[in-house]
Design a binder for these strands. Structure first.
Length: 218
DNA sequence: GCGACAG
DNA sequence: ATCTTGTCGC
């Protein structure tokens, strides 16, 4: 039922252990253009104290409509630590994905993918565990340097770490603050940027993650 | 020592 | 992220 991880690992890790694990997970990332990208599952989570609510909204890209949505609640114990966000959010997101009736072609996460100090942001961590196509779309920067993208919708600038391109700063709406797109797993940066733009209608954030955010805090 | 720092 | 109403700016 739904998407289930190919493998798992301990979650009660020390910061040092968590970082070591991220380096190992990053080595498993694969780059490819997904066979299908018709349905996208937007994922997000909201937390109040120790209680969290994760939401998954499956969006049909061409029809621009929601096909399915689920929400699950649970305890979130890992604290927020810049660079270790996935250890706080992945457990509950996996619970939500397991409840889906359908299998989305791509996962769109509210956070970074490879645009991370150890190339293992939330989208990468989740994508690798599920071995499923994933893209990260964050509202702000965690890591990397970049120029200001053009002001029109669709323009974007590469996000670099030294000479390596780790993501893209994308203008989803004219004159609006850009979003940070990066590959999570089984994806290419070009396809991730194109998909993000195709999923964006009248708001700054693409519909999948925007709706998931809305549902998670409802 | 001083910033920066996804959500 | 979360705490929270009105309000500054294009």
């Amino acid at each position: 039922m739904g998407l289930t991880p190919r493998f798992t690992h301990p979650w009660d890790l020390s910061p040092a252990e968590a970082q070591a694990l991220q380096r190992k997970l990053a080595r498993r990332v694969r780059f490819e253009v997904p066979e299908r990208m018709e349905t996208v599952a937007g994922l997000d989570i909201s937390v109040r104290g120790e209680q969290g609510r994760a939401a998954a909204v499956v969006w049909h890209v061409d029809r621009q409509q929601v096909l399915e949505h689920v929400a699950v609640e649970g305890t979130v114990s890992f604290p927020y630590v810049p660079g270790l966000l996935s250890f706080r959010e992945v457990p509950l997101l996996l619970q939500a994905l397991a409840q889906l009736r359908t299998t989305p072609d791509v996962l769109m996460v509210d956070g970074q993918g490879l645009a991370h100090p150890r190339r293992c942001g939330l989208a990468t961590h989740l994508g690798v565990l599920l071995d499923h196509p994933a893209v990260g779309v964050a509202k702000s920067r965690l890591f990397g340097r970049h120029a200001e993208p053009g002001p029109e919708k669709g323009s974007w600038a590469p996000l670099y770490d030294d000479g390596e391109v780790i993501g893209a700063v994308v203008r989803t709406r004219t004159g609006v603050r850009p979003v940070y797109v990066s590959v999570g797993h089984r994806m290419t940066l070009e396809a991730a940027v194109a998909l993000t733009l195709r999923c964006t209608t009248r708001y700054r954030l693409p519909e999948p993650t925007r709706l998931a955010d809305q549902l998670s805090r409802a």
